[in-house]
């Protein structure tokens, strides 16, 4: 009888499954905006530049992209924001990108090692860690040492991602040992935990604290200077729109670009 029954189960599942793609289509419609592979839009004269950038650059680069489009009529800028490590891997696996802006030299190194950049990368900004606490600061954290209190729930980025590496470096510089409750896979996820009050403190970038718009409070600490994160940018060797790639990098390095980035909390290199 098992065949008959599992058959009916599958039948039933497939009936339910019929509604799933529709629902998924609706959902993905809402959350679109992430480019997939290269679209053939470039064929009809409109030019396109594709920028792979670290998630922490989402706000600033979107703004710069609009400025770029305004300065280069007929050109559109497409962004792929994500974890720097993931982006680096997509590029080494042949993703059609023109520009890569990473949140750490290490991830950029994966791409330069594969000889995929055109020329050496340039460090365009630096980002510093802050202690992020919920707006009300329930655990009354005001310096790095407070994070060692076992009653304080702390979230850190995993060491494998840039913000985690920076946190480890800063804590080592301070000679402190913190036992976090979680090691998040990226800085946004870490910040979310603070915003929701699930943790009492986290180490994230200053820019992320500013971007949260007051939902979390940032606390500077001296050891942050020992773990400053450099953001390198490079045009890519196989860039489908080579000249535009160089121009976009130039915009980022220009005073206009520096201005936008500084407003978001980045420091000049």
């Amino acid at each position: 009888m098992s065949n008959a029954v599992s058959g009916s189960v599958l039948g039933r599942l497939s009936r339910w499954a019929a509604v799933v793609p529709v629902a998924l289509a609706v959902l993905s419609g809402c959350g679109s905006g992430e480019p997939s592979a290269a679209s053939p839009a470039a064929a009809d004269g409109a030019r396109q530049v594709t920028v792979f950038a670290a998630a922490s650059l989402t706000g600033t680069f979107t703004e710069l992209g609009k400025a770029f489009e305004a300065a280069h009529p007929g050109t559109s800028v497409r962004f792929n924001f994500g974890s720097s490590a993931t982006l680096a891997q997509q590029i080494t696996q042949g993703a059609p990108a023109d520009v890569f802006a990473a949140a750490s030299p290490a991830t950029m190194k994966t791409v330069t090692d594969a000889a995929l950049t055109s020329g050496a990368p340039t460090t365009f900004v630096r980002n510093k860690l802050q202690i992020a606490v919920p707006a009300a600061n329930p655990a009354k954290v005001d310096e790095l040492k407070d994070l060692t209190d076992p009653k304080v729930k702390v979230a850190l980025c995993a060491e494998q991602v840039p913000c985690g590496a920076a946190a480890t470096k800063a804590l080592a510089a301070a000679g402190l040992k913190v036992t976090p409750v979680t090691l998040e896979q990226d800085v946004k996820a870490t910040l979310t935990k603070v915003e929701l009050g699930e943790v009492d403190a986290a180490l994230v970038y200053r820019t992320d604290v500013i971007a949260s718009g007051g939902k979390v409070q940032g606390i500077d600490f001296p050891e942050a200077d020992k773990a400053v994160n450099d953001y390198p940018i490079a045009a890519l060797a196989k860039a489908p729109s080579g000249d535009l790639a160089g121009q976009f990098v130039a915009l980022v390095l220009s005073p206009q670009g520096k201005d936008v980035l500084a407003k978001a909390g980045f420091e000049a290199p």
């Binding site: 409750v181 979680t182 090691l183 998040e184 896979q185 996820a189 979310t192 935990k193």
Partner: peptide
Amino acid sequence: TITFAGNFPGTTR
């Protein structure tokens, strides 16, 4: 899992 329970070796990873 990673969103709700976090990611810590031995307990939630």
